[in-house]
Design a protein around this nucleic acid. Structure first.
Lengths: 248, 248
DNA sequence: GGTCGCAAACTTGCATACTAGTTTTCTACA
DNA sequence: TGTAGAAAACTAGTATGCAAGTTTGCGACC
């Protein structure tokens, strides 16, 4: 396909399907990230069939790196491969969302309690202030606010030396991220969320673990309030696979 | 299983390196599991270089399924691939263990508190009793005890409808499992552990979330007490990283 | 004997060809 | 026109070959 091999001047030069020059040979990792972004941003809608050949053509590579990328996304529950039949974008699973919600609540509680117990450095607390300021500034831009929101939560994980916890949990986070993307426009008033962030920070500053836990729980229950509403509004994207009747 | 399809009396029949007949053509998933087991059981020691070609020969396939299997293990942090240089079994990372420990504590606390809050069915409580009995019976057999220990913890996750939480977190669990395998023989007296299990169960039965949380914390701090001792005893398997990368 | 350098023997990454299975389409026949 | 059936056009899974880079080891030269 697209590149001369021995005439070294053009080594590694590739062209997209529109003839435009494409800089680098996207390897497995970058292909996986690109596809992942498309799925989370719902550019690839649940139920859609994607073809290894199509993707290979799109990225200007052979099927091999694409396959390896897809394999990782299977582990993250974002796609499902039916042998000899096709590769499909999975529907958002309410069960998965519930699980991710439980996981996130448990972790955030542990992180903020731990932070409140052992205390954070003045620098960390200052950085948290700054991030909240950024959130105020980003009030009108949902995507920018989301980034600042992520930064806020990650900051406290960093503060107790667990900075890479969330990166390691990309897998479960993926379940969440699609829902979060859906709820980008129509959420709880951002004022409310910022106020909750302030309460969480204050609890950590005053070294009050119980208050920190309470603040986190309030915050997350707010964030997750929208989930079921979204499920009703987007039945084409979400599958209601909640089976268990919860408890006696 | 391996039966001829057209005339091929030997179609699909494969032989291991010792000439023994091997039933099925191991596909990506089973290859990944097999390698994973070997790593966790320390048959493949940290720092060892494994070759895609070797593994392909061992499983009687080409490099392709092996590569795809290894890719999954990279995500689990069990192996590291240095392009053009080799594929290595990672050392047990104290950082990773600490992270996994934090994660597990946070989750178990959340699970048992939740179970204590909403209560479990009589059947579940009975099953928990049975598992504890099994643990008593398995006192002399570490591996059997470990299985019963897993079952105990999983039971409560099931009880609150979060049964698949840990299967989803295989990734992080892997960090733990190698340590746990190391500590199989020489742990805390099993009596102590069983007593702690009883305390946890009792707290759930009496619907006392705070007591449940306390019991879980005591239990896990006991389990993790051995970690650092193990690190000193097995410097060849464990790397004391608090920010350093691994190298062979 | 010691050291530098090149070549051969590795390694993984990627592309391609082929296999087996499924779906779709088109044709032949009623 | 309607339907059955075969063939063609897909799918993913696997094997293989080549490319690019690293390590190793041997040999020539000092």
């Amino acid at each position: 396909m697209g590149s001369g091999s021995r005439l070294g001047k053009f080594d590694g030069i590739r062209r997209g399907e529109d003839g435009q020059l494409v800089g680098a040979p996207p390897s497995t990792a970058s292909i996986r990230d690109a596809i992942r972004r498309d799925i989370i941003a719902l550019k690839l809608k649940p139920g859609t069939r994607v073809s290894e050949n199509e993707l290979a053509a799109r990225f200007g590579t052979s099927r091999t790196p694409v396959r390896e990328a897809l394999l990782g996304l299977v582990d993250q529950g974002l796609i499902a491969v039916l042998p000899q039949r096709g590769t499909y974008i999975t529907y958002i699973s309410l069960k998965g969302v519930r699980r991710a919600r439980f996981l996130r609540l448990a972790l955030e509680v542990a992180i903020f309690r731990s932070a409140a117990e052992q205390g954070l450095s003045r620098a960390m607390l200052g950085a948290a202030e700054d991030v909240i300021d950024e959130q105020v500034a980003a009030e009108a831009d949902p995507e920018r606010f989301t980034r600042a929101d992520d930064a806020f939560h990650r900051l406290f994980a960093d503060g107790i030396g667990m900075g890479d916890l969330w990166t390691v949990l990309e897998q479960e986070k993926a379940q969440f991220d699609r829902i979060r993307f859906l709820s980008l426009p129509n959420v709880t008033p951002i004022d409310t969320l910022i106020g909750q962030h302030r309460a969480m920070l204050e609890a950590v500053r005053t070294r009050d673990p119980m208050a920190a836990e309470e603040a986190v729980k309030i915050h997350l229950s707010e964030v997750l309030k929208v989930t079921f509403e979204l499920a009703e509004r987007h039945p084409d994207l979400i599958i209601d696979d909640l089976d268990a009747p919860q408890s006696p």
